[in-house]
Amino acid sequence: MDNAAKIFPASLDSLEPIRDYVSKRCEVLGFNKKKTYGLCLAIDEIATNIINYGYPKAGIGLGIIEVHMADDARQLTVTLIDTAVAFDPLAHLVPNQDDMNKPLEDRPIGGLGILLARQNVDEFRYERRGDQNCNVFVVNVSS
């Protein structure tokens, strides 16, 4: 079991550093490119929501995002913790198959990020703990 955590300012400038922080761990764990990319994409999408909507809606000028990582022989778990307004991505409507089959010119564009977040990891969970949003991303080591 190995644990690590880092705090980032909740600003769009932090997106790339957050992805780099996570992908370095993926590299150490020997994840392939596809798995690393999927996890970074999922985290990027949720972090973007926190930065663009969560903190502004809470009226907080510059919040923080804590990135926690824990891994064991079976899986890597990354948790994003913020104190923005409560937002459960799993309760949010995402485009359905009908929407996906629509021509691009008629396509609703909202919810795409959340869909990508859910689809690109083995498990995605959300918990509200006190005033914190905890978005949990789990990737299996061997899959």
Binding site: L41, E45, T48, R107, L112
Partner: peptide, 11 residues
């Protein structure tokens, strides 16, 4: 890397 924000530009 391309996120949904990039897809939006493509759209």
């Amino acid at each position: 890397f391309v996120s949904s924000a990039g897809l939006r530009v493509l759209l």
